[in-house]
Structures are given as structure tokens and as C-alpha cells.
Simulated scan of single mutants.
Amino acid sequence: MEFNRLGLTPIVIFNLIIWLFFTLAYFYQIVYVVRVLFRGTVTLPKAKKQHRYAFFISAHNEELVIGNLVRSILAQDYPRELMDVFVVCDACTDSTHEEAEKAGAIVWDRNDLARRGKSWALDYGFDRILNEYGDKYEAFVVLDADNLVSKDFISVMNQAFDAGYLVCTGYRNSKNFDSSWVSAAYALWFMREAKFLNNARMMVGTSCAISGSGWMVSERIVRGMHGWDFHTLTEDIQFSTFCCANNVQIGYAPAEFFDEQPVTFKASWTQRMRWTKGFYQVFFSYARDLAKGISKGRFASYDMLMTVAPGMILTLLSFFVNATYLIVGSLSHGFIATQGEL
């Protein structure tokens, strides 16, 4: 009775619990935003050495864009002899091989139709580079075929690597911000991810997360893992979670590269569904490891758990509970729900 007098009916209490959970769980991201607004962009120390890098690109029928990416990599303000570009043509049926080779890349063909995809191409490419080139390269930089890199991309990334970060993510900008409202929304999302998540994480000394492309991994990490063993639908977030679970800190470098975003809602829906399924795969595989990290006082483990946690399930549950209450309450003519509640 006291609860009713305060207006705390069952549906109000349910909604308060949901609100309280999300607010407490993600309040730290508001702290991130405030930190960035006052501190701006992280400043990396000047590199003492220019390291040697292998750029890796997995491509499937990308003849229209692959040459542009390879040329943008080789045109950077970094010594040409310290970087090579490797392209794995993954079951290509067009002229991707010829276009990549013409632009200056080392090109390999891979035609394993049973295990096609970026994660399998990474495993193949890393293994072959390590076997054929030994320890020539100190780190790998992974890009997608439709990317472009800024002139100073690897110079900025080199600062983070020289500072001791064995894994590092860059600043993801968009090639087609104004193509549609969908591409604009994606561009804003990734700018927010770079500036107000990874940039903030770097400032407070916690671990970042790699996302899609534009990231770097040390040769020592890949060799230690004996290749690339991340084959969920979101191998990038799986690797980030693996690093977090094993206390490998991922850094952030404001090394700018440009990515092409989906233009139609249908394409976005398909991609987001794949990402959602991949996040669930990662959550159920690594939740226990992240919980252990939290118990040891690692904030990065909590941050990553909140990143992969199935919050959408709770959101949908809340929506359906409220919708059901609204419909049934309306039909009950005040028996189940009062007009004030409705």
C-alpha cells in the first residue's frame, strides 16, 4: 500500500530497476566523455626508432579499390624500405590480384572455399609471412581493401609501438560520410568510438579495443599464438577480449585512416545482425575470464564485459514487458493498470 501511495507500482519498479542497472553499468562512459572534453586527444611520445611493418589486407573481389589502398600505404611519409604490403586474394574471381600487384603489393592467392573469410585469410597470411620472412617485420598492420590511410598513419602508429604497446588501434574516419543517413550514422559511431572510448581509455591508462581494421599487432604476439585463432563472426572483438583476459593492454594512436560505410539500411541490418551474433559468441566464450579479471581489480575487464554484454536482450525484454502491460492494461479498463500508469 505504501508503495502504491508513492506511485511505485510493479511496472514503475521494473522500469526503475532497468534504468538503474544501465545507468550504473555504463556511467563510466560519461566520465570518459568529460575527460576527453577537458583533455582533448592523447599525446604520444616521439618514437626513438622507426620500426619495420608488414601491412596485411584480405581481399575478395576488390579490384576497384585495392590499388588505391596499396598506393596510399606506399605513399606515406615513412621509409619505403621499412614497410611492405601483403594482399591475400581470398577466392577472388576478378582482377584483384593484378591490380594489387600493379600498385606494388606482394600478392598471394587463397582458394579455400570451406574456410573463406577475413579471419582465415589472416591465419593463412600471418603464418606464411612468419615462415617465409622470419623475423623481418616487427609488427603487422591490418586494413580492409576499401580503406585509405593518411600520410602519417604509420608514423603515428609507430609512436605507440615504440612506446611499448604490442597491440594498437587507430582513428577510424569515413570515406562516404554524406552518402546517406546510414553512412553518416556509422561515421559518427566510429568517430565516437575513437575519440570518446579508445582515446579516453588511453588517457586513463586502461585497455582499448580493436575494431574491424586499422589496427596493429606485434609479431611477437602472433608468433606466440602460433598464428591467428580467432574465427567467430567478430574476430576483432574476440581478439580484443582475448588480450584483455590475458592482461595485454591495447593502445590507441590517433593514426587516421578512412573506411567505407554501408549506405542502405538493409546492408546495415545484415552487418549489425552479424555483429550482434558475434558479440554473443564472444560473451559466452569469455565472460568467465573477464569476471576473473574483474575480481582481480582490472577495470579493463569490466569495460570489455560491458562492451560484449548482451544489453540488447535486456532492452528488448524491457520493451516487451512495457508493451504487454500497456496493451493488457488498456483492455482491462482500469482493473490491471490505472489510467495514470498508462
Rank of each mutant, 00 (worst) to 15 (best):
T169R: 00
Y171N: 14
E63D: 11
Q159I: 08
R128K: 14
K136R: 12
S155A: 15
H226E: 09
R172L: 15
W269E: 12
A309T: 05
S174P: 13
R52H: 10
F153G: 04
T307M: 13
F126T: 04
W108G: 03
A185M: 15
N246T: 04
I73T: 07
V328L: 12
Y325M: 15
V217Y: 00
H333M: 14
F14M: 02
G251Q: 00
L314N: 02
V33F: 13
S58W: 03
L130D: 06
I18K: 05
F299T: 06
A255T: 01
K292A: 14
Y325V: 14
L188A: 14
R5D: 11
E341F: 09
D303Y: 08
W269I: 06
L166K: 10
F239Q: 00
V328Q: 08
S285D: 14
S213D: 06
R192L: 13
L143T: 01
N68E: 15
G329F: 03
F55G: 00
T338A: 06
D84L: 02
Y252C: 03
D259T: 10
Y280D: 10
H231L: 02
I66G: 04
I313F: 05
S211G: 11
R5S: 14
L20N: 10
D144Y: 03
S213C: 08
G334A: 10
N68C: 13
A253W: 05
K46C: 12
